[in-house]
Amino acid sequence: MVEGKGIRKSFGDLEVLKGIDISIAPAEIVAILGASGAGKTTLLQILSSLDNPTQGEVFINNTAVHKLGEKQLARFRNQNIGFVFQFHQLLPEFTAAENCMLPALIGGIPQKEAEKKAQELLSFLGLEQRLEHKPGQLSGGEKQRVAVARALINDPAVIFADEPSGNLDSKNQDELMDLFINLRQQFKQTFIIVTHDEHLAEKSDRTIHMKDGFIE
């Protein structure tokens, strides 16, 4: 599903990733753990196509994403990858349903179809009473569920999550990981999660530990 070969990343003279090989299977939930500065977020950004490696190759569903042009990559990302971030990245002027719909509209899905899919996903995630609420009217856990629904709207093969529980209390952290597990069972998506949360990582299928730009 997701494979990185010989990944290196440097920023000037600072080498953050020092030759990483990683392979993640379809429908696997993998947690990437490590201290600040270990390189885990940089690895996630490269695996998810948000950044390019200084050296190495990245494949998603057998597509060499590091070789795609800008327009091809944007289209591939929209159709195959979902993102969940620590601070939700919801647009404050839009409702929950409108935030959820955005990737579908960008992908060319007709508005009525996108609205229907957004309503179905948000209802599946227990937010059927919050469709018309804006982010400022939602709790932290509700915002994160909207972000998850947005990540799912185009039926991506893989979801990348960067510290998704970092801004949540312990109850919502547990509920979020249980949600990921349930979604994997329902939709067979792959989840790659960067986290500091050992408890969250324990619920994943596999934990990858990083230190000083290497996988331990």
Rank of each mutant, 00 (worst) to 15 (best):
E3M: 10
K5Y: 10
G6E: 15
G6K: 05
K9F: 00
K9M: 03
K9L: 00
S10N: 15
F11Y: 15
D13I: 07
E15N: 03
L17H: 09
K18R: 06
D21G: 10
I22M: 07
S23L: 09
I24H: 11
P26D: 06
E28M: 09
I29P: 02
I29C: 08
I32M: 11
L33Q: 12
L33P: 05
G34L: 03
G37N: 11
G37Y: 14
A38E: 01
A38P: 01
A38H: 03
T42F: 00
Q45I: 00
Q45K: 13
S48H: 13
S49D: 08
S49I: 05
L50I: 01
L50F: 00
N52R: 15
N52C: 14
P53S: 07
P53Q: 06
T54V: 11
Q55T: 14
E57Y: 06
F59T: 12
N61D: 14
N62C: 07
T63E: 12
T63A: 08
A64I: 04
A64M: 09
K67R: 09
G69V: 08
G69P: 13
K71M: 14
K71P: 01
K71T: 08
Q72D: 15
Q72R: 12
L73C: 09
R75G: 02
F76R: 03
R77K: 04
Q79H: 09
G82D: 01
V84F: 02
V84S: 02
F85M: 06
F87M: 11
L91R: 04
P92Y: 07
F94I: 05
T95M: 04
A96C: 02
A97I: 14
C100D: 06
A104N: 08
I106L: 11
I106T: 10
I106W: 10
G107N: 09
I109E: 03
P110N: 12
E113F: 04
E113K: 09
A114V: 00
E115G: 09
E115F: 10
A118N: 04
A118R: 09
A118E: 08
L121T: 07
L122W: 06
S123K: 07
L125G: 10
L125A: 12
G126Q: 11
L127G: 05
E128G: 13
Q129T: 12
E132M: 13
H133P: 06
H133N: 06
G136L: 14
S139D: 02
S139K: 13
G141S: 15
K143H: 04
K143D: 06
Q144D: 09
R150T: 00
A151H: 05
I153S: 11
N154M: 12
D155S: 07
P156D: 07
P156F: 04
A161Q: 10
D162S: 02
E163N: 14
L168N: 04
L168T: 04
D169S: 02
S170N: 05
K171N: 04
K171G: 03
N172V: 06
D174M: 01
L179I: 07
L179V: 09
L179M: 14
F180A: 05
I181G: 09
L183T: 03
R184W: 12
Q185Y: 11
Q185W: 04
Q185E: 14
Q186S: 10
Q186Y: 10
F187P: 10
T190P: 00
I193P: 01
V194R: 05
D197N: 02
E198V: 05
E198S: 08
H199C: 01
L200I: 05
A201K: 00
D205L: 11
D205Q: 08
R206I: 12
T207H: 03
H209R: 13
K211H: 15
F214L: 15
I215P: 13
